[in-house]
Amino acid sequence: MLEISNLHVSIGDQTILKGIDLTVKPGEVHAIMGPNGSGKSTLSHVLAGREGYEVIEGSVRYEGKDLLGLSPEARAHAGIFLGFQYPVEIPGVNNMYFLKAAINARRKANGLKELDAFDFIQMAKKKAGLVGLDESLLQRAVNEGFSGGEKKRNEIFQMAVLEPQLAILDETDSGLDIDALRIVAEGVNALRDPERAVILVTHYQRLLDYIVPDYVHVLSDGRIVRSGGRELALTLEEKGYGWLKEAAAT
């Protein structure tokens, strides 16, 4: 589904990613962990098509095609979803209005019939219930005045509505209490399916108690320095990231 090879990315003069190799197959959940500044968010943003990053070497292929040449919206239409670490507040843009426009843009790009207002609202209400998002938030401006937990829940709600093939969740767990974390995790688990894949970017292990990954990768200084199964996350939890640096030095 996703093949990242030797990816080097810079912002301005600074090289952030220094040769990432990662293959994600349908049905898999990959966790990417690493200390602050290791390049986790850069990787998420580059995959979603954010401007301001320069790919200086390497390639990313998604479902066999070059991904890096696509606009952010074309990536969304192809089934990629980015859950933001800091969801943006957009005053004056109604949550439902926006999401209906988003889903219909994707349906249109894929040659499907657009949803009418009634079908959309029925579906959206059902999904909101599933992720525990208060229905009153649906009629508010996107993320405006939402608490941290509500913003993250809104990300998961949008993901549930858009039903992506590849969901990239950038530190979705940060700032959540245990209850919110559980609901977010349930939202992600509900999406798990042999055809879909998830990349979880996280600083902490605790999310992985709820969403059990198939693979864990540790990112440090722009490189994946170690990959393994779920037990790698537990080791990190126990020993911290310092352990890796020591291990790398020896």
Binding site: R50, E51, S71, E73, F81, A102, R106
Partner: peptide
């Protein structure tokens, strides 16, 4: 804001 909306599939 533009990136957020586009990342959800809205044309620019």
């Amino acid at each position: 804001m533009l990136f957020y909306l586009r990342s959800r599939g809205l044309p620019e």
